[in-house]
Design a protein around this nucleic acid. Structure first.
Ligand SMILES: [Mn+2]
Ligand SMILES: [Mn+2]
Ligand SMILES: [Zn+2]
Ligand SMILES: [Zn+2]
Lengths: 150, 150
DNA sequence: ATTTGTAATTAGAATAGTTCTAATTCTTAC
DNA sequence: GTAAGAATTAGAACTATTCTAATTACAAAT
């Protein structure tokens, strides 16, 4: 999807919530889609700044909050670290690599999600589930046993 | 297990890590075992104070950190709220009731835990997994269809 | 029993991330 | 073009936590 139609889709989602599309919201969202490495608000701020040099950190927080409220972005909290932001709308878990500090998406098959929800006793109605791994992720090995480049 | 043998077990665990048993550590741990409602550091502080009126909040943080390091207590983070502390050592998930603000333990059968770990691709080595639900928990209904008291 | 080194506790300062406030600027509807 | 509301902005305020430096408690070693 090109930037143009991405911006269209964003505008639509915002309108659905009675909100306006603004350059700040567009660029913040574009930044999240461009490099899906779960940046913090500070990191988003740094990436948006070259495009919109007058944007403030408060606005970045506001835009991220708005995108989360519109269900276009997920806020990801790992322990007490700064909140990270993820535009992946598929059901997925997070793997936090303690060595590199990076956070990776882990696809969650619907079957597993159902199995997890099924642990809840009657009367517990979940609105959301978070599954977060911590550990170290060596790059997967290729056929010759060498680590592949990330 | 009575307070006496509980204190013994704590002393042993601390000794294993080259640490001393102290009144502060003992009372903080007792408070966590007594009311297993996932209190925050502030709440632990308030509960310990009557027993040890001169204890400081810094010490409560230090004790909690020590208990976590000795694997006697789990630190539970829900979104960006204050860290909560849980002495339940069984593998379990957490259900955060958004209406009451309370956090409940949800037993995790080993089978489910295994199934969840199995979503990780080769090369991902988890040291821990966190599963957290958010939603509302109505009290389970009894045979007559009335909500039971918590 | 005293000394001495280390561990633990303590009060308060500092920090980090985020949210709030109030002023300004931008948009949209009239 | 004007008015009303929405969004942005800079900076202050806030909360939970960690750090610092001083004090106190403890446990050998003498
Ligand atoms: Mn940040
Ligand atoms: Mn607290
Ligand atoms: Zn993600
Ligand atoms: Zn628990």
């Amino acid at each position: 999807m090109d930037t143009e139609s991405r911006t269209e889709a964003l505008a639509q989602r915002l309108a659905d919530s009675g909100l306006r599309s603004t350059p700040q919201r567009e660029v913040v969202y574009d930044v999240l889609l461009k490099k899906r490495d779960h940046p913090t608000a500070d990191e988003v701020f740094a990436r948006v700044k070259p495009e919109l040099p007058t944007i403030s950190l408060a606005t970045v927080y506001n835009c991220l909050e708005t995108l989360v409220a519109c269900d276009l972005v997920r806020a990801v909290n790992i322990e007490r670290g700064p909140t990270r932001y993820c535009p992946n709308l598929q059901p997925h878990a997070h793997f936090h690599d303690v060595k590199t500090g990076r956070t990776h998406d882990i696809d969650l098959p619907p079957e597993v999600l159902e199995r997890v929800q099924a642990v809840l006793p009657a009367g517990y109605t979940p609105a959301s589930v978070e599954i977060t791994f911590r550990g170290s992720a060596c790059a997967p090995l290729d056929a010759t046993g060498q680590a592949t480049k990330s």
